[in-house]
Amino acid sequence: MATTDIGPKNPAVKAGEAAFDYVDKRTGVKTGAKWFMFRNIPAETSWFQTLGFTAMALFGMQAITGIILAMYYKPDPNSAFQSVEVITNEVTWGWLVRGMHKWGASAMIVVVFLHLGRVFFFGSYKYPRELTWVTGAILLIMTMFMGLTGYLLVWDQKAYWATVVAVNITASAPIIGPYIADILRAGPEFGPETLSRFYSIHMLVIPGGMATFIGLHLFLISKLGIAEPPYSKRRMAVERAEEEARRAAENERLPYGRREVPAVAPATPEPQKVEGAS
């Protein structure tokens, strides 16, 4: 400490540092952030490993544009459609925010599916990352339910009737189906309450669940470390070295000068002695 203190510090800087230290001593946030940012990850990570973060960024964008839309949207059957019209045609940049929210939903589905694909083809769901996959799969399902519940809010014919069909489908599920459908509809029929129920599910229930599960997902990812791509140079070298060591061990076990006839055909055929010909 003393050796780096080579002169009087600006009191503002001192106060700032003291405040940081105060918080860090009590929360460990500085240490934690430092660990998170500067922890080692495998040297070679693929561009495909950016898709999870991209999904998260899109989720953030949906949250922000969604908050702005909520400032103008009216979840009431008599004014919902009109308020969407106002957002689209009158509110400054309203068409852009609504467009971003709409395209963002599709983009998020695409990116989450691509992310799933990369995790699948990299085998990154294998030990010890099984539970990371499970939290991710639940996130995918929640993302799709966001699309389903948000579709109704525009309150236009196409969305309304598609949602009627979707809820009817839910109701046809055995045993609990009718109860879930009643909860979704806020009663036995589609009515004024249905819209506000979908609104609250779309902007409170599912986003809350998603934030929680993104938290769990991230906790597991940073605890376990991001998987190394299975074809990384380091991994290939290890694989080659292991293969060589295995061969060498096999050779050593055999008495000098004699070769056993392998039970199955060897991968590389032994050179054949042509005896009869000479």
Binding site: P77, F81, Q82, V84, E85, T88, W95, L96, R98, G99, M100, K102, W103, A105, S106, I109, M144, G147, L148, Y151, V154, W155, D156, Q157, K158, A159, Y160, W161, A162, V164, V165, A166, F190
Partner: peptide, 27 residues
Amino acid sequence: AIWHRVEIGEPVNPASTDFVPRPEWYF
């Protein structure tokens, strides 16, 4: 969002069933 402006369809009319129930493409 800029290139493909969002559209808005017909307002809901539960009495008129003149509709094509189409979900979002990912369904």
